[in-house]
């Protein structure tokens, strides 16, 4: 499994891994039940410190993106049952606030922003539901 690591970016490498796994799930490349490589294998593959990979996996587990049943490896979790409703809402609102700031900065009006977002949602839905 390949991920793009950019050491020249100020973003910690474990964060880069977390974001890319999340993107892979959002875009349907990784699906519920898919197995992730072991910490050791991914570390060696990417030539990245194993603690960095372990930290990324811990973060993904905390965010409910992956599950690690004891001794069985790491798997992409079903999207809804591991994280509380409250936590999911909190994360979504945080992301939405960033988008709202961008809309203001880029002078995209509320109506246009909402329409664009709906469009993107439908597009992602189409991709996921299988082409």
């Amino acid at each position: 499994m390949w991920y793009h690591i950019d050491p020249s970016s100020g973003t910690p490498i474990y964060r880069q891994l977390v974001e890319q796994v999340q993107q892979a799930v959002a875009s349907g490349v990784l699906r519920a039940g898919d197995r992730l490589p072991s910490v050791r294998d991914l570390a060696v593959e990417l030539a990245v410190n194993p603690n960095t990979v372990a930290k990324a996996y811990q973060e993904l587990e905390r965010a409910g993106v992956i599950e690690t049943p004891r001794g069985k490896g790491s798997f992409i979790a079903d999207r809804d049952h591991t994280v509380t409703e409250e936590e999911r809402l909190r994360q979504f609102i945080e992301a939405a606030d960033k988008l709202v700031a961008d809309a203001y900065r880029l002078r995209i009006g509320s109506e246009r922003a909402a329409a664009l977002f709906a469009e993107r949602l439908a597009e992602a839905e189409r991709r996921r539901s299988g082409e």
Binding site: V44, L46, V48
Partner: peptide
């Protein structure tokens, strides 16, 4: 990296390649 993980060997690496270090070192 694989062998240091396997054996638990401690590694001290001196290098000017800081991108390489940033990946490998903790």
């Amino acid at each position: 990296l694989a062998d240091s993980i396997e054996t638990g060997c401690t590694v001290l690496l001196s290098s000017h390649d800081l991108h390489q270090i940033e990946r490998l070192a903790d």
